[in-house]
Nucleic acid binder design. Structure first.
Lengths: 71, 71
DNA sequence: GCCGATTCGGGTAATTCGGGTG
DNA sequence: GCTGTCCGAATTACCCGAATCG
């Protein structure tokens, strides 16, 4: 071992590792929806998410890209 | 590189990247047509579209601009 | 600690969906 | 063939004050 960095973080099969996290605003811009709508997707289980210790959601770039290109 | 969300999303050769998406109402206003008509264009394959996780269509500004300037 | 921007929550309007019909 | 409209259901947008982010 040694440096003790994060190798991978996978939730629901999606990559939440370093450089893969999108904010609600990011996802909203990508789909052209209100950030509130992104929150609803998360609550409805349509979008996987993790939470910061403060309670703010973060999303997987990998999953968002997948959803953009047609389910 | 700046904000780094998603580089590009191309469907049927048209740009569906961030800042390039139009709602059904947007397209309807541009062509002065009922939004339902825009939906029919999409169903008939005359207009490419992607869907939000909720099932609402989004269109490519690039394609609409192309069609506006006469085929 | 301060500050601007964002994202919580909730609630309520406005759009869009799909099918059917003129 | 193409478009507008009616309907109910589902999805999304805008409003607020409080909290978090960077």
């Amino acid at each position: 071992m040694g440096k003790r960095t994060i190798e991978s973080v996978i939730v629901d099969g999606w990559d939440f590792g370093p450089g893969q996290l999108l904010s609600p605003g990011d996802v909203a811009n990508i789909f052209r929806v209100d950030p509130k709508t992104v929150t609803r997707w998360a609550n409805d289980g349509k979008l996987s998410s993790i939470r910061t210790p403060g309670g703010v959601r973060r999303f997987s770039r990998q999953q968002v890209t997948y959803l953009m290109s047609g389910r």
